[in-house]
Design a binder for these strands. Structure first.
Lengths: 347, 347
DNA sequence: TGAATAATTCAAAGCGCTTTGAATGTTTTA
DNA sequence: TAAAACATTCAAAGCGCTTTGAATTATTCA
């Protein structure tokens, strides 16, 4: 048997009832200060922490939040922003002693996973990741009465819900305008999967900027796909197989931008010189370069920060279940790097 | 109140005792087949799943495994392989209905986190990540009597423990020999942080290959640091500031290799032509390119696979606590890409 | 057919906490 | 100084399951 102290032992040691010891340690006011200190000292001395299984059953709360990470079955692709997001969220959970339950499922099993968590009452809340347009998981979560926050939004969903999102439309609008101001008229867009809400909003910002500047939208220059390095690479090649290749490319992620760079290198095109690149940047920790002029001009928003704020909103809404749903919109920063220059026709 | 069915309700509906219903659903043999089917049907019909809080308390097991992700305080760096590893481990947990508890802590708080998990008896087991040389977390986990598996090994630790690791020494030995066979005699090594066990083993394989081929080891060409893209970039620049820059570079990760590529591009050096690059590759999903000749020659080992096997070993050792500890050594594949060519002096 | 055996089912205890409602001890008030 | 008011502590119930040990029912054997 393991050498653990339980409440019973501790209360015997102290010559107090379990009730009093429990209250002393949980900060209830009706315990005398003398007793409280005595209890706290003994708890430390005997390395007592309440058994979380028992605590959860007795208190009716699990102090656990679930994050559900989906991997598409074919690609087994893991979203690379996930670990940074989680790391931000964790920071918030640690502050309030929540545990984080991470569940990885195939797309098609995701609904069942939510149902399952609710039926087992295994968690106090859920973070919904990577919402699509008209995402019916939101309706489901409303039915399940499980508190949740969406990381992102879902166009087309009429119900209200808690969300934290980057202003994707505005980020890509500004990015596109920035390129237009530099004289670019032919701008490619290498975006995420078509039914992802963020991808739709980004495309929409891009389109709006072109329209407002009376530039024709060439649908062939818009790519949708899973945001891998090879995808960026291949899409760039396709762009340059066209009769009139773009003079600038917008990318939806740093990983894509890596692929773009590899393709351009092979094509002997200099980034910034021959072609401008502007990428969205989630500010992932292992790409972060400090103190220097960054290679890529980008619209940047820390996904770790988003994780923290998402966790915070969820904890708030668990604490206060009746409160109005709210949305938090983060603005991306336009950061000028070396990858964008005034348009010059390739000689 | 939420519309959940509990065991009591279900047993009343069925006109059976809670005991019988519980046993029927948990597959005990002393329940008649007729009763079992009736119970299963009713459970489905009324959407019954046992409350996990209660189940855990009653059964004494949490059916939860903890993974502790550390972020260095200064850099707030998240290990990019983490999400792929987790995704592999999750697949195994799903098979046996384990939950995955993810905890993110600063390096210095990690010990306390383990103690905490043990004292609260919050998990049935732990996966230890990123072991260093002489890692004292192993001793601690042995004391805590908490089942665990190390992802990696720890040189210098004499106690026995369960581990799953890539054969880093052999991978880098082969990689180095491969470059030597191509005629390279000056080979740089851009490695991980110096006290990480994997980095030590990799450096050791590299050294052995040079020694065996009677090539002088130039310590100035060995770099240790956190494996980010900018680190790869900067280290490459340093290599080329030397009087006698290397003709080949070994890299410890794909992310580093990205940085190397960026530096070489700026230097107008062609990968494969002017300089050979060989990188370790964790086969992260978002770098995976299928069907083509890969850019990078690499020693490759899927970290997702390692995650699956680690989880499997942990589950086995929880099931059978008395069993001998075991180590699982994965061999990396040497995959030839475009980034390595026979040595030619730069003209 | 009645005892012995096997197959099912059940009532109740227990997991280790929190929380309710009652009891005791202490101080204040008149 | 007794009653009222307040402060502190306690015994016991309850959270929703699993599991023990006993009870009931069905089957087999002589």
């Amino acid at each position: 048997m393991k050498n653990t102290t339980d409440l019973k032992k501790l209360s015997i040691i102290l010559g107090l009832s379990q009730t009093t010891v429990s209250r002393a340690l949980n900060g209830f006011p009706e315990v005398s200060e003398k007793t409280r200190i005595r209890a706290q000292l003994a708890a430390k001395k005997y390395n007592y922490l309440p058994n979380s299984r028992a605590k959860r059953l007795a208190s009716g709360r699990t102090m656990t939040i679930a994050h559900i990470m989906t991997t598409s079955k074919e690609h087994e692709l893991v979203n690379p922003i996930f670990s940074d997001f989680i790391s931000g969220a964790s920071r918030r959970y640690n502050e309030s002693n929540y545990d984080l339950l991470l569940s990885t499922v195939n797309d098609e099993d995701e609904h069942e996973t939510y149902r399952d968590l609710a039926a087992r009452s295994a968690v106090d809340g859920v973070v919904l990741h990577a919402p699509k347009i008209n995402d019916n998981r939101i309706t489901m979560l409303n039915e399940l009465q499980l508190p949740y926050v969406v990381h992102g939004r879902s166009s087309g969903v009429k119900e209200s819900y808690n969300w934290v999102d980057v202003n994707n439309e505005s980020a890509f609008f500004r990015a596109t305008e920035f390129l237009i101001d530099l004289g670019h008229k032919s701008i490619g867009l290498i975006n995420g999967v078509a039914d992802m809400d963020f991808a739709i909003r980004r495309a929409s910002g891009y389109r709006r900027a072109l329209s407002e500047n009376i530039i024709n939208i060439d649908e062939a220059k818009i790519f949708n796909g899973e945001m891998t390095e090879p995808y960026g690479y291949k899409s760039t090649f396709k762009l340059f197989e066209m009769e009139n290749p773009p003079s600038a490319i917008l990318s939806s992620s740093r990983i894509i931008a890596m692929g773009i760079r590899r393709a351009l290198e092979e094509k002997n095109l200099k980034i910034g010189q021959d072609i401008s690149i502007l990428t969205f940047d989630d500010d992932l920790s292992y790409f972060r370069e400090d103190g220097e002029i960054p290679l890529f001009t980008s619209t940047k928003s820390s996904v770790r920060e988003a994780g923290y704020k998402t966790a915070n909103l969820l904890i708030e809404s668990i604490k206060n279940p009746t409160q109005e749903t709210q949305g938090i919109l983060l603005e991306a920063e336009l950061t000028i790097g070396l990858s964008t220059k005034r348009f010059r026709p390739i000689s």
